[in-house]
Write a protein that binds this DNA or RNA. Sequence first.
DNA 1: GCTATAGTTCACCATATGGAAAACTATAAT
DNA 2: ATTATAGTTTTCCATATGGTGAACTATAGC
Lengths: 114, 114
Amino acid sequence: MENYNFTLDTAFHALADPTRRAVINRLVEGDAPVKKLAEPFDMGLPAFLKHLRVLEESGLITTRKCGRVRTCRLQPKRLSDAEAWLSEQRELWQAGADRLAAYVENQMREDDDE
Amino acid sequence: MENYNFTLDTAFHALADPTRRAVINRLVEGDAPVKKLAEPFDMGLPAFLKHLRVLEESGLITTRKCGRVRTCRLQPKRLSDAEAWLSEQRELWQAGADRLAAYVENQMREDDDE
DNA sequence: GCTATAGTTCACCATATGGAAAACTATAAT
DNA sequence: ATTATAGTTTTCCATATGGTGAACTATAGC
């Protein structure tokens, strides 16, 4: 039961917010400073910074401050981690569905033989 | 700015909790009743039911009550939806990275020619 | 040096979340 | 008819979350 995966917890939590997903969707096109990232959103800088901090603590982005401007960069590895968990679950489910289908078909064949 | 995607909001939010991910990870192996699902967890039924409701409202699972037992089933479509968003972001990022690499290489070639 | 800019910190607020305990309902099982 | 089982509802609590406005800091531009 060691399902305590801090990385997935924080990554999925970060992705659960539309503002934060929009930030990611902007950062896939390249690095950007806080000011620029915040522009499209109807909220104060403090609120926006909180979102950035959530993203940073999840590892989905990293930031670097040069002079007075902080630049944000996407960390695609963490996207892949989340994606990997999802695809694994989907594959496990698929395997079960296939097994079930094979079993059902097998039963039908036996019924035919009787 | 129509980044208001209720499906992704609720799906990622549901996936952000280790208990709920463990439930999903159990349901990929097949349907199960509430009691059985709750067994491995150190919490009361009411708390566990809240998690199930979060999963159900997100569309990640569906439930059906027969007699006094409620059976839970995974809805893999929603897993795919979340996975699709992630893979799209990764692909967009990859495209940008490729463009950048091509540009850099091009610049280096120009430098050689001078 | 003055001022505008980019970000940061702080105090505050309403609501959401994850949990507990207790009381209740409906259906099997004997 | 009793009793055990499976789930449900309700009330309550502490903490987390997402936002605000105001005050502050550090750097860039003139």
